[in-house]
Amino acid sequence: MKAWLGIGITLAVVAAAVAAPWLAPVDPLASDFAQGLRPPGALGHPLGTDQLGRDLLARVLYGARLALFIGACTVVLTAVVGGLLGLVAGFVERWPATALMRLADVQLSFPFILLAMTINAIVGLGLRNIILSLSAAGWVVYARVVRGEVLSVKERDFVQAAAALGVGRARLLFRHVLPNVAPSIIVVASLQFSQFIVAEAAISFLGFGVQPPTPAWGSMLAEGRDFLYVAWWLAAFPGAALALTALGVNLLGDWLRDTLDPKLRV
């Protein structure tokens, strides 16, 4: 049940994002002052319009694109970087690896959102920088999980046997260890995905992150909050879309974990 719900919601969000140009009646950036703050159900604007008369449906749909884009980029970036570092750190076990894990500890001693926000405030706002900031703050989890997995996989008989047969280290790492660690990476990725998009929204809400007029849910929520008493829909729909996406991806992640790696705790 949960699995189907997760897959269903996630697929729906992906479909909406992909098909945004066809589903959206108008350009999400096109403003029409005369049509400002129309409530949902207004002619031609199923979800209403914002203060500049931009169509909310279009903005929410394009927002899905952006959220998934940010989530995907960040997850890939963190998985590759964090995963590789974790893999190497687990396999090498010399001082550079220890130093790396200490660095991971340093980073973990700081709240994720606050860290990403601090980095973002310093490197500058905008789409590219928020992805970089989230990645810089998020790679640690992979490094830790993967290193732990590698340490245990390494002791297993088939790896030991391969090593004894004289298989090269790189080959050993990528052919024998990596496939056994991959499920963990996938599970962590799916669980991190929603954390990233919610964090992005929270950071944008506080005035950093993706800036208007780009239709990102986070900045839309930040804009909509000022209109809470006059136009509830401006905060309601982006907020709902964000919650729904996070819900779908979380359920999917749970299901993946239950199937692929039930012992993993993140």
Partner: peptide
């Protein structure tokens, strides 16, 4: 954004 009344919205409207 948010420094002056509707500053960002005014700027977007000027662009339009």
């Amino acid at each position: 954004a948010g420094r002056y009344p509707l500053d960002k919205d005014v700027s977007l409207a000027i662009a339009a």
